[in-house]
Design a binder for these strands. Structure first.
Lengths: 348, 348
DNA sequence: GTTAATAATTGGAACGTTCCAACTTTGTCA
DNA sequence: TGACAAAGTTGGAACGTTCCAATTATTAAC
């Protein structure tokens, strides 16, 4: 059949109108007569026309394309998958489509991905930055006036919007809860020390430990990769201490699951002989056994709110940076032992 | 500063060359003198030039953009997240960037997303189709000569490449293994009955049940949503039967986790009083307690292989449909009780 | 039956890039 | 010295769309 791609001019010719009219039909203009519209639409379907967004964007330098980009640093963490789903629900109803890319914590990859999205003229970007991202990396975006919302990790000095959860309050509440249950040797487990999120969560833990009178002890902080495997590993190191902890506030739920795995491997029952609190409240947290006590940050909710912030900026024209903190709350389930008897230290 | 965006002409003016020369620099042509090249590059950096891929694609109608799209039906299932990172690793090294979109099993959304990706001139598409997708939905893509690889779910009649795992062989092996352990009342649990994948996995189960002499019984098939919650639900129905099963072959790992949750809630220990086998071998399968016996389909591997198939088609020019089946293998861990004593039926 | 207003349509210019054919400069060879 | 080739560079046309100003067809008002 047709060798080249079918254009608006082909449609015009076949429908016996001008290309301008076809263009008007394309943008659903009320100027065009109903009968012409239906005819043009019919021809389009018949010839298998596909809109060339590139050409369109070329002309209307102002209006950007109807896509928003989301860049995450670790797609295998279901937290980010859920965040993306949350974003999707709101951008979808605003008539946008979402393109997601994963950086796997690589700054180089992140640069490529963001450049590529810019080249395709995204209307805005939601970014959970890779470790080590600097304000400088985002400079070009703000210079170009592209709305950006940072989520999960903020970047000091970058003049863009951000939405992070109240990490300090979260771990603070976790420690208070464990202390109220009678624990005093409470460890802080998992996470990479050189991130802002780690600092904030550790800060909440530290302040709460000081406040509860038991005091903050450096040795009770045992870091690791923020993954399930990292949790297993970190727990091993914690339990090897001369006076091991009886409870753990974990960097995130993945670590907490790892800690539970590690406990079980030592024949210690999480929620019974050892209290575990997570952070994030991922979807599995409530169905796993024992159900995980954790800090709920509602990833889908964050995604939705971030998307709303972004859309607001897009519609406002002039992007105005806005910082928000998403509040968190402690969800008490079984893994902290609150529903059971007093915590003991019956180890194998 | 500059109100409009900076173009190749601005660069040319500032560098004292013609726009053609700038264009040649952009595509790293050997024709341009080394000194000119460095000068032009310097000016680009200085003025903050961003390449306009849309304009470029407009001119070179043949060469498509350097992006490949991946469309998945359920991003919250970590299977797909891992598949996506598998794809990413190979397209990345081929100089492509990957844009992912989620359809949440909505055909309408899938249509939008695919249309949007086409409009942006993707070089190829990897699609895990939403439930109910028909060959007709893919027709426009193949007509336009856009390479497509279907993963996970095949669509009969669509003239595109596909890569699915050997579902039949997987459940067949699972049943054989359980039978060898002495089980005879083996249920098939979870999944929506109206999908090709379900049919294939059920088929493997049915054939194996017939072969082992215990025979296939309709009542032992209990379907549900293919999620953790679905597994909990399905197990409840299975255990309510007059003569409940002692083992379950699950539709996927998510269901299997749900089944384990449900068993625990009934004080039945998975891997001890009840055997559970999953399907997919997601990342958590090996670290959970008890470690899940499952059919390994290696989602990252499938992603990689699908990406290779796609790149092959892209480079070949003329896309040639190719069907492949990814072999699977049974990974024996703890949840089937193979490492423990004979299976009993000590229920609470 | 003329004028004014409204509705519908239209050709041409513009967007930022690449391709092509033509051009200039420099160097080589008979 | 002239012819020729090689290396670099260049202006204009083209890609598929939208916008603008201009045009024609239709209806309403007097």
């Amino acid at each position: 059949m047709g060798k080249g791609r079918v254009t608006v001019i082909d449609i015009a010719k076949a429908a016996g109108v001008s290309k301008s009219t076809v263009s008007l039909v394309l943008q659903a203009s009320p100027l065009v007569n109903e009968s012409t519209r239906t005819k043009v639409n019919a021809v389009m379907r018949e010839l298998g026309y596909v809109y060339n967004r590139g050409a369109a964007n070329l002309r209307q330098a102002n209006a950007r394309s109807k896509i928003i980009g989301i860049v995450v640093n670790d797609l295998t963490n279901s937290f980010f998958a859920e965040l993306a789903v949350g974003v999707d629900t709101v951008v979808q109803s605003a008539g946008f489509v979402q393109f997601l890319s994963n950086t796997s914590e690589s700054i180089d990859r992140q640069r490529e991905v963001i450049a590529s999205m810019r080249e395709h003229g995204v209307s805005g970007l939601i970014i959970s930055p890779a470790r080590g991202t600097e304000a400088l990396d985002l400079k070009p975006l703000v210079m170009a006036g592209i709305p950006v919302v940072l989520v999960v990790r903020n970047i000091p000095g970058a003049k863009v919007s951000s939405l992070v959860s109240d990490n300090h309050a979260g771990t603070f509440a976790a420690v208070e809860h464990l202390a109220a249950l009678g624990h005093s040797r409470i460890a802080f487990v998992g996470g990479f020390p050189d991130t802002a999120v780690f600092d904030e969560r550790l800060g909440g833990y530290r302040d709460a430990m000081s406040k509860t009178g038991t005091g903050f002890q450096e040795e009770l902080v045992v870091s690791s990769a923020p993954s399930r495997a990292g949790g297993v590993d970190a727990l091993a190191r914690a339990m090897a201490m001369p006076d091991p902890p009886t409870a753990a506030v974990c960097f995130n739920d993945a670590v907490a699951f790892g800690v539970c795995d590690g406990l079980r491997a030592r024949r210690i029952e999480p929620g019974k002989n050892f209290a575990v609190v997570g952070f994030d409240d991922v979807i599995e947290a409530k169905t796993t056994v024992p159900a995980l006590t954790t800090i709920s940050v509602d990833p889908q909710g964050i995604g939705q709110r971030a998307a709303q912030m972004l859309l607001k900026q897009i519609n406002a024209g002039k992007p105005e940076a806005e910082s928000a903190v998403s509040s968190v709350r402690l969800i008490v389930r079984e893994s902290c032992g609150a529903a059971m008897n007093k915590p003991g230290r019956k180890m194998a």
